[in-house]
């Protein structure tokens, strides 16, 4: 199952270093904080962790998780500048994060699945999106409903779905 999240970095700056670290401590564990700045700037690290946690939460909800989004309860380990492993509830996901100028986004999928099964849609109006409850689906050419994940923040929008 899949989940995604996008962050507009231009809307995610902090007034002070102190505020940044207070915020980070509410969201990340000590082990995660120790990875800040290892592969990107510290502020990018925070939003990388955040987006991976949010994306993993969305994927877990699709798998039946019914709790609330509690970022501090989701464990992320960064493997390099792109890849990460996310442990949440009984689920283990792998994630990929990309940063382009002011846009940071993450996609996650169950650890034993393949990223190549994720299709990224560039323009929302090129696909038909429907909802079952709060879960989005994209309709395939054959009418099949493909699990999707949608995220928007600031001026950025990202939509992914499983391939048919």
């Amino acid at each position: 199952m899949i989940g995604n999240d996008v962050v507009d970095l231009s809307l995610s700056a902090f007034d002070s270093e102190r505020r940044f670290w207070r915020y980070s401590q509410k969201v990340c564990s000590r082990i995660e904080l120790n990875q800040f700045g290892q592969f990107e700037s510290k502020q990018q690290s925070l939003w990388r962790f955040w987006s991976l946690k949010e994306a993993a939460f969305k994927a877990a909800v699709r798998l039946g998780y019914q709790g609330l989004f509690r970022p501090a309860k989701i464990q992320v380990e960064l493997l390099d500048s792109v890849r990460a492993i996310i442990q949440f509830d009984q689920y283990r996901f792998k994630g990929k994060t990309h940063i382009e100028l002011q846009q940071l986004w993450s996609d996650v999928i169950l650890e034993d699945a393949e990223f190549k099964s994720i299709v990224s849609v560039q323009r929302r109006n090129t696909v038909s999106v429907s909802y079952k409850g709060r879960l989005p689906f994209v309709e395939s050419d054959t009418g099949a409903k493909l699990p999707a994940s949608i995220s928007h923040h600031g001026s950025f929008f990202r939509l992914i779905h499983l391939s048919a």
Binding site: R19, R22, Y23, K26, E54, P71, H153
Partner: peptide, 14 residues
């Protein structure tokens, strides 16, 4: 309120 801003609310309350 978006989930990221909920943390801001908590910090502002503190």
């Amino acid at each position: 309120i978006n989930s990221a801003n909920l943390v801001d609310v908590v910090l502002d309350v503190e």
